[in-house]
């Protein structure tokens, strides 16, 4: 028994060493020893006027990916949708940009700032499996919190009164029937929605059903609104779906397929590959979109590189690509229990 107890202690100590020592080295020694090798790309945005990505450099400088240096004033003028307030203050905001009439209000209305982290993906985090559906056509101007929550069961949708905890049979049947009528196959495979009442409008939930077909479900004047989203290419199998709810209403949402190709869902429910087929794995990568009425800069952070794509906001075609691989990986492998990509606590060796 003594031998077994000592073996157990040995295993525990060994695990603690491969957990703590790499952690100490990676957190404290790496920044001293390899300070210049770590850290990602500086802030990078695509300029449609210069037709290149422009980065902030140390101090006040700006530099194009082509190597060209810009003064701060030049960079402000080349990125007028981002530095709008600065240009307005200096009286340098033009009336038209690339032939399109602009105003500070229009720029504010059409700018996009969208972040999606890997841990936002449902498979990368625990879910309580209750969701909130807002009234998308509220009587007052602002969106209001609902008084019920819903859950998907294996053969329907259930609304539960949040004050009493009782299921609302009438509303549940109404929404289940509306989904079934449109061909929805229960149980739901994937869904996404944003129940934040501070947003400007509500697109409800985007759903992928058990047959991997996409739907939009929202509540309009208390009634269910269900719309099937058809794919022109039947070979595409949706995997993840995201509601975007941009202020400009330029998209219904986005989706990725089994091959991690990123698509946009347009306001008239067309599904188009973004940038001709940008790859984005929502379980392994973080995505940031900063866009304006003419072009979007998409940054996808993978394990190997930071990928920047410039995409036309008008037809979603690819304009420019910049892939910045990480210079080296100075981190020691070891035992970890948590990751930045997900919310699970479990042992993993990397």
């Amino acid at each position: 028994m003594r031998k077994l107890a000592n073996i157990i202690l040995g295993i525990i100590v060994a695990l603690l060493v491969v957990w703590e020592l790499p952690w100490l080295y990676n957190n404290y020694a790496v920044s001293f020893l390899h300070g210049d090798e770590i850290g990602g790309q500086p802030f990078t945005l695509y300029s449609g006027l210069a037709d290149e990505f422009i980065q902030n450099t140390e101090g006040q400088g700006r530099r194009g990916i082509s190597g060209r240096e810009y003064t701060v004033e030049e960079a402000d003028s080349l990125l007028p949708f981002f530095w709008t307030t600065q240009l307005v203050n200096a009286g340098r905001l033009p009336d038209t940009i690339r032939g399109y009439a602009v105003s500070p209000q229009l720029i504010r209305q059409t700018n996009i700032n969208y972040h999606r982290r890997a841990y936002d993906t449902h498979t990368n985090r625990p879910n309580c499996c209750l969701w909130l559906l807002l009234e998308s056509l509220p009587k007052r101007v602002n969106l209001e919190d609902p008084d019920d929550a819903f859950r998907f069961t294996k053969d329907g949708i259930e609304f539960i009164n949040m004050n009493t905890g009782k299921v609302k049979p009438k509303k549940s049947k109404l929404f289940t029937d509306a989904l079934v009528k449109k061909g929805f196959a229960f149980p739901v495979h994937e869904l996404d929605g944003n129940p934040d009442t501070r947003k400007e409008y509500d697109e409800g939930y985007l759903l992928i059903d058990n047959n991997r077909k996409m739907y939009q479900m929202k509540m309009t004047a208390g009634q269910p609104f269900v719309k099937k989203i058809d794919l022109t290419d039947e070979t595409v199998v949706p995997k993840f779906i995201f509601v975007t709810e941009f202020r400009s209403r330029c998209l219904r949402g986005m989706m990725t397929d089994e091959n991690n190709v990123l698509y946009v869902i347009t306001p008239n429910y067309e599904v188009k590959p973004l940038g001709g087929g940008i790859h984005y794995d929502p379980t392994q990568s973080n995505m940031m979109i900063m866009g304006n009425m003419l072009d979007w800069t998409i940054r996808i952070t993978t394990e190997e590189a930071e990928e920047f794509y410039a995409v036309s906001a008008l037809d979603h075609s690819l304009l420019k690509t910049f892939i910045a691989p990480y210079r080296s990986n100075p981190y020691l492998p070891g035992l970890h229990f948590t990751e930045t990509l997900d919310r699970w606590v479990k042992p993993r060796f990397n």
Binding site: R125, C128, W131, L132, A149, M162, N163, P195
Partner: peptide, 14 residues
């Protein structure tokens, strides 16, 4: 605050 408020907080906050 009422039950609904608590439910919403528990659903939306991790």
């Amino acid at each position: 605050m009422g039950g609904a408020h608590i439910w919403i907080a528990m659903i939306t906050k991790d």
